[in-house]
């Protein structure tokens, strides 16, 4: 007995599925690898990977860079707690001045 997927479908429906599958295959196995091979994109990909930036992250727990960012912020809070909680009465020195 033929599976239901093919038994109850006309040729045009099956052709639609085959064309869709072929399009996906061509895009993912030919077009996207070609695009990904371009030097400027490769450079960007390397740059992001080095910084733990995975652009596919949907939620903050999926972002590779997040634990380091959270640790950095914890440290900033320990050293400059007032800066984040108290309304400032005077302007801060610009970072360049402070570095000098």
């Amino acid at each position: 007995m033929r599976p239901q997927l093919f038994r109850n479908n006309t040729w045009d429906r099956r052709l639609g599925l085959a064309l869709g599958a072929a399009a996906i295959t061509w895009v993912w196995l030919v077009a996207l690898p070609w695009l990904g091979g371009r030097p400027e994109l490769r450079e960007d990909l390397r740059w992001r990977a080095a910084r733990g930036i995975n652009a596919g992250a949907m939620y903050y727990t999926e972002l590779e860079a997040m634990p380091d960012i959270a640790a950095h912020l914890d440290e900033l809070h320990e050293r400059h707690a007032e800066a984040f909680w108290r309304v400032s009465e005077r302007s801060p020195e610009p970072p360049a001045e402070r570095a000098r």
């Binding site: 997927l5 093919f6 109850n8 479908n9 429906r13 099956r14 639609g16 599925l17 869709g20 599958a21 996906i24 993912w28 996207l32 695009l35 990904g36 994109l41 960007d44 990909l45 992001r48 995975n54 652009a55 596919g56 949907m58």
Partner: peptide, 28 residues
């Protein structure tokens, strides 16, 4: 998870929907 797709942040819900729609709107 193809790197160019990831680069442009086209997340998995889009492709999951696409595959499901491809089946339901062609061979049902």
């Amino acid at each position: 998870t193809q790197e160019v797709v990831e680069y442009y942040n086209l997340e998995y819900p889009l492709w999951a929907l696409l595959l499901g729609l491809l089946i339901s709107n062609t061979v049902r």
